[in-house]
C-alpha cells in the first residue's frame, strides 16, 4: 500500500468521504482570527487550505496560519502561488514549510497583481502551476530544480486546481493532465453549483487517476449568487437554485440547505470528497454537513 504523509491523503485513500475546508487569513496580525476559524472547522474537516493573498490583496501570509492550525490539531493545506515568488523563493518556502510540519501543498498560478490592492507591484510569474508542481515533485524526490541533492527531502502531497466550468474546457483538461504528469496527487476545483458541470468534469477526467474534490462556497445571498455568476470565471448558478434564494424567507436556512444538497449531490455523483470554502459561514459548516447526510 502506498504510504501517505497526510491525513488528507489517508482519508481519500480509505474511501471515506473527505471534507477539506478553507481558512481566510486576516488583513492584520490577529492570530485569534485563525484560531477561531480553526476551532469551528476542526470537528468537520480533515484538513483546511490557507489562501495565499487571493486576488493579490495583502493579508497575513500562508505559512503562519498553517502552523497555528496544526498546533491546534487541524491539518493544513499550504497554498503556494507563482505571483509573488520566483523559483528560488518558492522552493525555499516549500523546504521551510516541510520543516514546520506541512504535509500538503496546493500549487497555483495565482491571480495577477493588477487585480488586487497593490496593482503597482511587480508580478513575478517565474513559473506557472504546471512547472511549480514539477518543482515540488522534484523536491519531494530529493533534488531542487538545478538538480542539486537535498539533505532531507520534504514529505508532502501535491494538490492542484481544476476549473470545471471553463469554456472551452479542452485546454483546461490538457493542462490538468500535465499537472498530473508533473506529479500532482489530488485536486480541488473552483466553485461549482451546477450538477451538469460536475457530471461533465467527471466524464472528462474519467481516464485520470486522481482524487478530485469539487469546491463549493455557500451562496449567502441573492446578490452573491448573481455576482459569482457574472464575475467568477466558469461559475454558473442553476435557475432553481437562484429561485430558491430569491423566494427565501430565511436566507441563512436556505443557504445551509442549498449547500447541504450540493454536498449530497457531489457524494452521489461519486466524487471522493468536497472542498468547502465557508466564506464567513464557518460556524454553519457542521450543520451543512449534517443535513447533507454524507456522514
Amino acid at each position: 500500500m502506498a504510504k501517505y504523509y497526510s491525513k488528507l491523503m489517508e482519508s481519500v485513500a480509505s474511501k471515506e468521504f473527505t471534507i477539506s475546508g478553507e481558512i481566510d487569513p486576516p488583513k492584520g496580525s490577529n492570530r485569534k482570527v485563525i484560531e477561531h476559524q480553526t476551532e469551528l472547522l476542526k470537528p468537520h474537516c480533515v484538513a483546511a487550505n490557507v489562501t495565499d493573498n487571493p486576488l493579490g490583496i495583502v493579508i497575513m501570509n500562508t505559512l503562519a496560519p498553517c502552523v497555528i492550525m496544526q498546533e491546534m490539531g487541524l491539518e493544513a493545506i499550504y497554498q503556494a502561488t507563482c505571483r509573488d515568488r520566483n523559483r528560488i523563493a518558492l522552493q525555499s518556502d516549500v523546504l521551510g514549510a516541510a520543516a514546520l510540519g506541512m504535509k500538503n501543498i496546493l500549487a497555483l498560478s495565482g491571480d495577477h497583481t493588477v487585480m488586487g490592492d497593490h496593482p503597482q507591484a511587480k508580478p513575478v510569474f517565474d513559473l506557472d502551476s504546471v512547472q511549480l508542481t514539477a518543482a515540488i515533485r522534484g523536491l519531494v524526490n530529493g533534488h531542487d530544480m538545478a538538480g542539486k541533492e537535498l539533505d532531507v527531502a520534504p514529505q508532502m502531497h501535491i494538490g492542484v486546481a481544476l476549473s470545471p466550468g471553463l469554456e472551452p474546457i479542452e485546454p483546461e483538461i490538457i493542462k490538468f493532465e500535465k499537472k498530473i504528469e508533473a506529479g500532482a496527487e489530488f485536486a480541488q476545483t473552483q466553485c461549482v453549483y451546477d450538477t451538469k458541470v460536475l457530471e461533465r468534469i467527471l466524464d472528462l477526467t474519467s481516464h485520470l487517476d486522481i482524487p478530485i474534490l469539487p469546491g463549493i462556497a455557500p451562496l449567502k445571498s441573492v446578490g452573491m449568487a448573481k455576482f459569482m455568476a457574472k464575475n467568477v470565471p466558469g461559475v454558473t448558478i442553476p435557475d432553481e437554485m437562484l429561485k430558491e434564494l430569491v423566494e427565501s424567507k430565511d436566507i441563512k436556512e436556505t443557504t445551509i440547505n442549498i449547500t447541504a444538497q450540493l454536498i449530497a449531490d457531489i457524494k452521489d455523483l461519486g466524487f471522493p470528497g468536497v472542498h468547502i470554502m465557508p466564506v464567513g459561514m464557518d460556524a454553519e459548516v457542521g450543520e451543512m454537513i449534517k443535513r447533507s447526510g454524507v456522514r
Binding site: 495577477h112 493588477v114 512547472q131 470565471p233
Partner: peptide
C-alpha cells in the same frame, strides 16, 4: 500577462483575460 507556458489559468473568462475583459486570453 502571467507569461504562462502550459495553458490558460483559471482566470480565463469567455475567452478573455482575467486582467482585461477586452483582451483575448493568449492561451
Amino acid at each position: 500577462p502571467k507569461s504562462h507556458m502550459n495553458g490558460p489559468c483559471g482566470g480565463l473568462y469567455n475567452g478573455k483575460c482575467e486582467t482585461d475583459k477586452n483582451r483575448d486570453c493568449a492561451w
